[in-house]
């Protein structure tokens, strides 16, 4: 009997041991299963959004962290609302423009435009035969009474409370009524697939930047509404090397030069230089003012540069 006792005890110990091992293995297996499942969830497209220390929302997807840029719907909802209390205006000093075309390059780059497409272009002007020619940058005039908005049948293009006239290419049906209505020829049509179409195909559509562009829709200058939201000067304004552009808030009566960063009173600048607006007689109240090309700082090049211009 004594002999039998020991193996019995041994058996119990053995049993407890195995139980312990099985228990531990089971727990770790379950844990592994659980975490595996969680990982699968994330891997299978379940996204986690995080706020980083510098206040950026990042999205956790496929085990990789990337910046969350927002959805098309968010951008459209935000872009329809103007920035409260602002009334953006631009002043272009024709005396300083020497056709450096940096504004055009920066604009085309930001809005994914082909080289032959312009939101802003510098035109060669000569008012009469015996007067001097000069260069005139011409963006959209962002009229307060815009005929392009009045004719749009689908409410794709719209006037915002802070001034810019924007376009929603998710709504645009490509009828081109607005192109016909605009007396400044400020609008362009995407006849072909936009530049780098495949590269940006999956990006959310930013209505304030009009990117990615879409074939069969109209595009136009947006006063760089995306930059204004970040309280930065528009692309063309900040990239001009010759101090041609002033930009600012009419409510504050101040505009800032994009090159020299000099801030001046808007009313004084316009009065002192006898500023004018293009085709004022149409009553469209454009938001772009021109200072006459008086005392030009650059002589007009006779042959040079001429070939660069698409008029």
């Amino acid at each position: 009997m004594e002999d039998n006792k020991e193996p019995k005890e041994n058996k119990r110990r053995e049993f407890l041991k195995t139980l312990g091992i099985i228990g531990a293995a089971g727990a770790s297996g379950a844990m592994a299963l659980y975490f595996g499942q969680q990982y699968e969830k994330i891997k299978s497209g379940k996204k986690v959004r995080l706020l980083t220390v510098d206040n950026k929302v990042v999205e956790f997807e496929n085990g990789e962290l990337k910046e969350f840029k927002g959805t098309t719907e968010d951008f459209i909802a935000r872009g329809r609302e103007g920035i409260p209390g602002k009334s953006w205006v631009m002043v272009i000093d024709l005396a300083k423009c020497r056709n450096a075309r940096k504004c055009i390059g920066a604009c085309q780059n930001a809005h994914h435009l082909r080289p032959e497409q312009y939101h802003v272009n510098t035109l060669q002007m000569q008012d009469s035969e015996i007067t001097s020619p000069y260069f005139m940058p011409k963006p959209c005039q962002h009229c307060d009474n815009p005929p392009c908005v009045s004719v749009c049948p689908v409410d794709a293009t719209f006037k915002r409370t802070d001034g810019p006239v924007l376009i929603d290419n998710e709504r645009c049906i490509g009828c081109r009524f607005c192109i016909a209505a605009c007396p400044y020829s400020a609008r362009i049509f995407n006849w072909f697939d936009p530049k780098d179409a495949e590269k940006f195909a999956n990006d959310p559509y930013d209505i304030e930047l009009n990117v990615p562009q879409k074939r069969g829709t109209v595009s136009k200058c947006l006063f760089s509404a995306d930059r204004l939201r970040k309280n930065e000067l528009p692309y063309c304004v900040s990239n001009c090397p010759n101090g041609v552009y002033y930009f600012g808030d009419k409510n504050e009566d101040a505009v800032t030069n994009g090159t020299t960063k000099e801030t001046v009173r808007l009313s004084t600048l316009l009065k002192d230089n006898a500023a004018y607006r293009l085709m004022e007689e149409l009553g469209q109240e454009p938001r772009v003012y021109y200072l006459p090309p008086k005392n030009r700082l650059f002589p007009f090049p006779e042959e040079e540069n001429k070939k660069d211009n698409h008029v």
């Binding site: 930009f247 504050e252 101040a254 000099e262 009173r265």
Partner: peptide
């Protein structure tokens, strides 16, 4: 202070 700079 103005929107994009300081006005003298």
């Amino acid at each position: 202070k103005r929107n994009f700079g300081w006005l003298p």
